[in-house]
Amino acid sequence: MCEIFSKILQVPINHIKPIDYVPAAAAVNRPYDCHLSNNQLINLGININCIGFEDWWKNYLNN
């Protein structure tokens, strides 16, 4: 996210350092590759089309 925002806003991020590890005490057990069904949204006539994160923010910040 930081890289995308820096690209959109044209600001440097060389001061940001990645975290290479997560301490075991801070780790959270998450399911692998879980998906939610969109069927109820589709049945209600709700548009489920999506736009990429970077494209959405570019459009939002340019308005």
Rank of each mutant, 00 (worst) to 15 (best):
N59C: 14
H35Y: 15
V28C: 04
N39E: 10
H35M: 13
P31F: 02
F53G: 03
I8M: 01
E3N: 10
D33K: 13
A25S: 11
N43I: 00
D20I: 03
I8C: 06
N38A: 09
Q40C: 12
Y60R: 09
D55F: 08
A26E: 06
C34R: 12
E3A: 10
G52E: 10
A24I: 03
F5Y: 12
D20H: 07
E3R: 06
K17G: 00
F53I: 08
P31V: 10
M1C: 11
A27E: 05
F5V: 04
I4F: 02
I16S: 03
I19H: 09
Y60Q: 07
K58F: 13
L44H: 13
E3T: 08
R30L: 07
E54N: 14
F53N: 04
N38H: 08
P23W: 04
I46F: 03
N62G: 09
K7I: 04
S37Y: 09
G45I: 04
A25C: 02
L44V: 05
N29Y: 08
M1A: 09
V28W: 00
P12C: 06
L61C: 08
P31T: 11
N63C: 02
L44N: 15
I13D: 14
N39Y: 03
I13F: 14
K17V: 05
E54H: 11
D55P: 02
A25R: 02
E3Q: 10
G45Y: 07
W56K: 12
N63Q: 11
D33W: 02
N29W: 03
I51M: 07
S6Q: 04
Y21P: 00
I51L: 14
Y32R: 15
